[in-house]
């Protein structure tokens, strides 16, 4: 291995630039098709031609209303949240060098859950639009505490970050359970938020969260090179010219923004952020500059597919996206784990 350029690509020539980019293009194409399906499929099926027309002109029909006011925001949120979840998982796993790291483990989901429980129990908020800022603030607060506890100080090891996340998460989950136990009304509202759903989200949420999402994505995609060097260990990474503190801080900010957006919009969804980066690594190897964009595209593929399936899976009503992602994604994930050589961190 050369010290100047830690590029796994040099070791495995068959995963060349052309192969990697062409698969990424394929994934983006799949995602685009899924977006169309997400606009067309639902309690009322709308032909693709009508969808296409409704995208550009508002003819005042019911179908145009459904597409423009219900399905477009829902699809946009699915896209954005999926990208956010995929990226946070990849960032967290890269930074902590722990394959189990995800918003759930690192306490961010627990932070937003605690804040939402407070919102319901103390302030009487009961709508997704009302949860947004609480979820966002909770995620940010938890991320900051975990970051200070686990990723600063004189000696920092990946293990500490993960343990700090687990500790903070445990305290917050206990707090949430206590409130739920003491207040059945809060429990009744909370159990529906905690499942993770895209239903009933309108354009106002999209507009509110989009700036945070965009900043988070730009930050995240710029971190690939630094995370690659850190994968060799903190000391080697520093020797390769990575500024450790700066990389950690930027990763922390990106994770907070993206996690906050995701949980604020749909509730705590665990599976996507944890597993999609693993799938990305199985396809492209451990190079973070590829893992990050692949995770960003593959995660919304899973999320949108799950949402579309969830709309038609039951004879009446919908199955929440948080449930369907697990049922759809887990078998694929387990199969991949059995088939392929697993690229470790």
């Amino acid at each position: 291995m050369t010290l100047t350029a830690p590029r796994p690509a040099a070791v495995r020539p068959r995963r060349g630039l052309a192969t990697r980019s062409s698969w990424l293009v394929v994934a983006v194409a799949v995602l685009a098709v899924l977006c169309l399906f997400s606009l067309a499929v639902g309690a009322q099926g709308i032909p693709l031609g009508t969808v296409w027309r409704a995208l550009w002109t508002d003819d005042g029909s019911d179908q145009a209303f459904i597409v423009a006011d219900l399905r477009i925001p829902r699809t946009l949120i699915g896209l954005g949240v999926g990208a956010a979840l995929g990226l946070t998982g990849a960032l967290m796993q890269g930074l902590t060098r722990n394959p189990l790291a995800d918003p759930g483990i690192l306490g961010v989901n627990a932070g937003s859950s605690a804040a939402v429980v407070l919102a319901i129990a103390v302030f009487g908020v009961t709508t997704p639009a009302g949860y947004v800022w609480f979820a966002f603030a909770g995620a940010a607060a938890a991320a900051v505490v975990v970051y200070l506890l686990g990723a600063t100080g004189r000696v920092v090891s990946p293990e500490r970050t993960v343990l700090a996340g687990a500790a903070v998460s445990a305290v917050l989950v206990s707090f949430v359970s206590t409130v739920l136990l003491l207040s059945p009304d809060t429990f009744d509202s909370f159990r529906f938020w905690a499942i993770g759903s895209l239903a009933g989200r309108r354009m106002d949420i999209v507009v509110t969260l989009a700036p945070f999402l965009l900043v988070g994505i730009v930050l995240a995609l710029g971190l690939g090179r630094a995370l690659n060097a850190l994968a060799l260990g903190d000391q080697t990474g520093a020797a390769l010219g990575v500024r450790l503190g700066r990389t950690r801080l930027l990763t922390g900010i990106a994770v907070t923004l993206l996690c906050g957006v995701a949980t604020a919009a749909v509730g705590p969804i665990g599976f996507v952020g944890l597993t999609v980066p693993h799938v990305a690594r199985m396809i492209v190897g451990p190079d973070q500059r590829w893992v990050l964009p692949y995770s960003m595209v593959l995660a919304p593929v899973l999320l949108l597919a799950a949402d579309v399936v969830g709309r038609v899976a039951l004879p009446s009503g919908e199955l929440e996206v948080g449930i369907v992602t697990a049922f759809l994604g887990a078998p694929v994930f387990v199969l991949l784990c059995r088939r392929r050589r697993i690229a470790q961190l």
Binding site: P99, F271, I323, G329, A330, F333, V334, C337
Partner: peptide, 14 residues
Amino acid sequence: ILVGIGITAVIEAV
């Protein structure tokens, strides 16, 4: 671990 994560996710969803 990875297989455990996958299966756990399904069961948690249930």
